[in-house]
């Protein structure tokens, strides 16, 4: 009987994605250590990495980096498979879907800031959806919507500007 050998080929792309995901995890952990005035409002710095990856390596790579970041970040914070993780995953999937659509918008008109803001809106929309449907059904979330959308607006703008600045520097 010949022993079966499983040989995992590690491509350069795998390494790149792993490295970028690690950077995103680092930002997530750093962010978790910063106390924030309002629970639930986070700057979402890891999305800077997602957006840069989207522009440099395409949507598929961005999906990998983002999902790896969500899972690894949750494992590192001890939140894996908790409601926090589910919310983070829902937000991540929603913003990735939004980015997958928005990346086809004409580049002449839409830059990183627009994409970042759209992704932030999709993110918070999905998260509030999870809260409304699963975590706290029946709670009136409408008053919170404006607060969280406002926060998403600010973080979307700031992250988008950072991405635009980074890409500008690169080219």
């Amino acid at each position: 009987m010949t022993p079966s050998i499983i040989n995992l080929e590690i491509s350069a792309e795998d390494r790149r994605i792993a490295g970028l995901a690690a950077a995103a995890v680092g930002l997530t952990l750093a962010e978790a250590a910063v106390p924030l005035p309002l629970p639930g409002v986070k700057p979402g710095l890891a999305n800077i990495v997602t957006l840069v990856v989207l522009y440099q390596f395409g949507w598929r790579a961005a999906v990998w980096v983002s999902l790896l970041r969500i899972v690894a970040g949750a494992l590192a914070l001890g939140a894996f498979l908790t409601p926090t993780f589910v919310m983070s995953l829902a937000g991540g999937l929603a913003s990735l879907t939004m980015l997958g659509l928005a990346v086809h918008l004409p580049r002449r008109w839409f830059g990183p800031v627009g994409l970042s803001a759209l992704a932030a809106f999709a993110h918070i929309g999905a998260q509030l959806g999870v809260v409304g449907v699963w975590l706290m059904p029946g709670v009136n979330l409408l008053p919170l919507l404006s607060v969280f959308l406002g926060a998403a607006w600010v973080s979307g703008l700031v992250n988008g500007l950072v991405v635009a600045g980074l890409l500008e520097k690169k080219t």
Binding site: R108, W109, F110, V113, A117, S146, W153, G156, L157, A164
Partner: peptide, 24 residues
């Protein structure tokens, strides 16, 4: 760094926040 579409998205988002503000 902001392109016209970006302004549009930001303005739309701000309008949405303003519309929802106080609503409820």
């Amino acid at each position: 760094l902001l392109k016209p579409g970006d302004w549009l998205v930001l303005a739309g988002g701000a309008a949405l926040v303003a519309a929802l503000w106080g609503h409820g």
